[in-house]
Amino acid sequence: MATGGRRGAAAAPLLVAVAALLLGAAGHLYPGEVCPGMDIRNNLTRLHELENCSVIEGHLQILLMFKTRPEDFRDLSFPKLIMITDYLLLFRVYGLESLKDLFPNLTVIRGSRLFFNYALVIFEMVHLKELGLYNLMNITRGSVRIEKNNELCYLATIDWSRILDSVEDNYIVLNKDDNEECGDICPGTAKGKTNCPATVINGQFVERCWTHSHCQKVCPTICKSHGCTAEGLCCHSECLGNCSQPDDPTKCVACRNFYLDGRCVETCPPPYYHFQDWRCVNFSFCQDLHHKCKNSRRQGCHQYVIHNNKCIPECPSGYTMNSSNLLCTPCLGPCPKVCHLLEGEKTIDSVTSAQELRGCTVINGSLIINIRGGNNLAAELEANLGLIEEISGYLKIRRSYALVSLSFFRKLRLIRGETLEIGNYSFYALDNQNLRQLWDWSKHNLTITQGKLFFHYNPKLCLSEIHKMEEVSGTKGRQERNDIALKTNGDQASCENELLKFSYIRTSFDKI
């Protein structure tokens, strides 16, 4: 039985969820670079991206490699990797027998973001014989899940209580170790020597080791999670996991709180800001991140802002960003909400898709409305799209047979046209069989910064309504002859009103 693990408890099935942008060198404390989270699957090609990484700022997932063999891993080693800020997950990587050479110096898994409450997941690794993470000293947050690894031993010899604050939620089941077939031998045991430290858990006094050649490092209890030197002297209180010299914040392997210019500090002093819960960055760093993602459509890219001495992905609820200094300031009234469309555009074809934009005031991208039916549609669209004030790209209304009016965009005031449909149009209306009105132009103002209007096959939309939009939106004169079809717009509506004058002759039985 794995020490510190839980057996036999019912657990939810383990679901495996399925960018080499360097964020800056980590400095003297770390020998390499800070790398983003990685999802490495199918083959070993991307694994080489770990070569210079000291910190993975995010998670590391290595999974679904069915053609790899043990010899493929023999020359692979990433000794610079010290810390993973989120979680480490391995799933069905064939041929991998140990992690001792792959990650010989991995010391800390912070667990800032977890995989279903777990910071370390080893699942269905069919050839893994031992973990071998002999320098792993601290899992700051989260638990361990090690399950269905039929060859995995050296679990009962690990004292997880020396690595985690609590072992109650560890789930370590259905491994070879369960069948008591392992016969784990710690260093020196074969020669009758006791080389590794022994600890007591559940009444068992057991030597602690990761492999037959690597003991588990056990520091004096007084050192807590700070770690200790090879001689057993406690590291500085700002260290986490390990250090090369005692009581020196510049000799830590990793930091308990924050890293700044080669030393570990309790908090980031001005003019620095907390970033990702582990390091200090200056304003320029946060500003660069903001600008890199301002026009990016890459998933996970955030326009970072500053709030409460932190550089964070977005302002919290009730705050909006001051564009001059990136500071989050309290909103006066309802907060603006910028919604970034991942692929640059979004099609609204149902109430469900409209709900995804609920509360958005600025759309960074283009909207395509293609709704053919739905219950209580006008009210639903207004509830979900009615706060949109600005669209950076274009607005396209296409084959939306259920629409009679666009009044559900009740606050839309600006279409920038930074991206144009077919390279020309910022407003595009095609084949809307029941569209009769755009907006009530006596109450609604709309500016279209650039781009043209396109109207074709809107049989109940009168040309007068379209011409009014040209005047109000500032697009009059931009359109070419064929942009607004004269014969297919309003051709099934009563669009022309003329005053009919009647004269009559009164007659009676005795007068003409």
Rank of each mutant, 00 (worst) to 15 (best):
I84P: 01
N175Y: 05
R263H: 07
N52T: 13
V108T: 13
S98Q: 02
E71P: 08
C228W: 01
C239I: 00
G227T: 07
E130S: 08
L44V: 12
P79Q: 09
Y118H: 09
H226Y: 14
C235Y: 00
I84R: 00
K251Y: 14
K310A: 10
V121M: 07
E180R: 12
H127F: 04
S143M: 13
D247A: 08
V93L: 14
N242D: 08
Y118A: 10
L60V: 07
N257A: 08
N150E: 06
N135G: 14
T229Q: 07
G227D: 05
P104T: 01
H212Q: 14
H127D: 10
C182Y: 03
N105K: 05
F66T: 05
P336R: 07
D248R: 02
K129I: 07
C234F: 02
T229R: 06
N170C: 08
N308D: 07
I306W: 04
L120A: 11
S161F: 11
K67M: 08
L152G: 02
A156V: 10
P269C: 01
K67R: 13
R208S: 14
W160V: 01
R46S: 14
C53I: 02
L327V: 03
Q276S: 13
L63S: 13
F116A: 11
R46L: 07
F66V: 13
E130V: 05
I172G: 13
H28N: 11
M125V: 03
I56L: 07
V206A: 04
V281P: 00
P334T: 12
D169M: 08
P79A: 06
I172H: 03
T85V: 05
I146Q: 03
N242C: 10
A198N: 12
P269S: 08
P330T: 14
N295D: 11
V265Q: 02
T329I: 15
H214S: 13
K176D: 14
R41H: 01
L29V: 06
G132E: 01
I201T: 06
W160I: 02
C35W: 00
I56Q: 00
N195I: 10
H212R: 09
T189Y: 04
C182T: 10
C228Q: 03
P70N: 03
E238T: 12
F258A: 08
T229E: 06
R297D: 15
Q245R: 13
H302Q: 14
T85F: 02
C311K: 02
S323P: 14
I306F: 14
A230W: 10
P270L: 10
D169N: 13
I312Q: 04
P313S: 09
G232Q: 08
S296A: 12
H212S: 04
F258T: 02
S323R: 04
G318H: 06
H214D: 04
N149T: 08
W278L: 05
A119T: 04
I62W: 02
C215S: 07
C215A: 09
K191A: 06
T221E: 15
N138G: 10
D261V: 10
P313A: 06
Q216P: 02
R69L: 05
R297V: 08
I185S: 05
C255P: 00
G318V: 03
C209I: 01
H214Y: 13
G241S: 08
D169R: 12
F205N: 15
P70E: 03
P330M: 05
D177I: 15
I139T: 02
T320V: 09
V253Y: 13
Y94L: 15
N149S: 10
H290V: 10
G132S: 14
F275G: 01
S324K: 14
L50F: 05
Y118V: 01
K100E: 15
K217Y: 05
Q276W: 03
C186V: 03
H28M: 06
N179S: 07
N149W: 01
D165C: 14
C311Q: 02
G111N: 00
P79G: 05
V281D: 01
C209M: 02
S143F: 07
N175K: 14
M321S: 03
F283W: 06
L174M: 13
G262H: 02
Q204V: 08
T85K: 04
N43E: 06
V173G: 02
L164Y: 03
G58L: 00
D159I: 10
F115L: 11
P31I: 09
D178Y: 12
A119Y: 00
V108Y: 03
L99N: 01
N117D: 02
L152Q: 07
K148M: 07
C328E: 01
L50W: 02
H302W: 11
L102V: 13
A119H: 00
H290Q: 14
S237D: 14
L50D: 00
E180K: 09
S284H: 03
P334S: 11
G32S: 03
F116V: 03
Y259I: 11
D177Q: 03
C215L: 07
K217S: 10
F283N: 09
T45L: 13
D277T: 05
Y171I: 14
Y319Q: 14
H290E: 02
I185G: 14
D177W: 10
H291R: 09
T45Q: 07
F116T: 07
D178P: 06
G183W: 05
E314Y: 04
M83S: 03
D248K: 03
R256G: 03
C223F: 04
M38S: 02
T45K: 11
T45F: 04
P270Y: 10
C252T: 02
E130A: 07
E147P: 01
C186L: 05
S98D: 02
S143R: 07
R279S: 05
I82C: 06
I139W: 00
L96V: 09
T85R: 13
R141P: 01
K129C: 08
C268L: 01
H307E: 05
V167A: 11
W160L: 05
E168T: 11
L174V: 15
T107F: 05
T194P: 12
A156W: 05
D169P: 13
I158D: 05
T320C: 14
C243I: 01
C209T: 04
L88C: 01
E207H: 14
R162I: 06
D247N: 06
S237R: 11
R145S: 11
L233C: 01
R46I: 04
N150L: 10
Q245L: 08
C239G: 01
C223T: 01
T329C: 04
C35S: 00
C219L: 03
G300T: 10
D86C: 01
T107C: 07
Y94C: 12
D177S: 03
C335K: 01
S98L: 01
L99R: 00
F66W: 14
Y259D: 14
S166H: 07
T157Q: 12
K67N: 06
N149Q: 03
C264W: 01
R263Q: 11
I185D: 07
P269G: 12
I163S: 01
L29S: 07
L326W: 04
E147Q: 13
S225C: 05
H127N: 04
